[in-house]
Design a protein around this nucleic acid. Sequence first.
DNA 1: TTTGGTGCAAAATCTTTGCATAATA
DNA 2: TATTATGCAAAGATTTTGCACCAAA
Lengths: 150, 150
Amino acid sequence: MGETEQIVRQMSEKGLRITEQRRTLAQLFAEAPGYLTPKDVYDHMQRFYPGLSFDTVYRNLRVMLDLGVVEQFAFEEGVKFKLSCEEPHHHHHMICLQCEKTLPIRSCPMPATDVPGGFQVVKHKFEVYGYCSECREPEGESAVAEGEKA
Amino acid sequence: MGETEQIVRQMSEKGLRITEQRRTLAQLFAEAPGYLTPKDVYDHMQRFYPGLSFDTVYRNLRVMLDLGVVEQFAFEEGVKFKLSCEEPHHHHHMICLQCEKTLPIRSCPMPATDVPGGFQVVKHKFEVYGYCSECREPEGESAVAEGEKA
DNA sequence: TTTGGTGCAAAATCTTTGCATAATA
DNA sequence: TATTATGCAAAGATTTTGCACCAAA
């Protein structure tokens, strides 16, 4: 699993010093399936560095965000982070409501969308939420397969 | 413009007492073109009620949210509110980056989206950002018409 | 007059900043 | 050894809560 080292190298190349915390942080993001809140990051790191402070977590998240190593996402419950997509092409995501893992959707709805005249499109967002194959209920328990909902 | 009264009645029917603040709040949302932050709301209301406190704003936003009178939206910059869509049918939005006004998109990309097997779709989000006819630059100044962008 | 709303103050979160110390390159 | 990163403490910013008083119904 060289993903961690790849992230570390990416940070190093951009002028950051590689501290133990940052290496652990890189590994955390490399192995995390979904999105992480600053608190998730803190809790995880804290196990390795008992003296860790929250401001270091925020500072490193900020730096990694500025460097493009991670991406930030504003959920209703708050801000979360994940590794930047390696996918070079334009794509969208399916996000698992259980494990928060993201899967790429390569088709883009934009070309087929009828934009009322006069509106100048700059960017768009398309996200599908649901349960991935590992997290979906085995049976049809409370499986409300409501594909239609805002 | 009976929109304000319509909102007020909606609140009243659901058991809320109609205070002057709430009437002003209803009017504010009825007339606001785009999204409002709690601070926007506070600043506006403050002009009419100098003694207004922030907690009242938050409490009323919460109540109106629970009642479905307004909708909450998590932007990167923070949480914002707007009147709930009157549109009864499933739809999506174009959001103006300048005035934040929202316009409905009635076509839904979901049916045409190829969802990888195993993923159980629960809900989705599709939003188009850009400039509405009133806010778009008159000429092609820095009009980067880049319809393609994450 | 009863129930719910408001202002005030204070607390609880969440995030950022200044500064001395410690660690990387 | 020259910066840069960290921990600590404190400050900001945002949002919530308890309580006494006031107002709508």
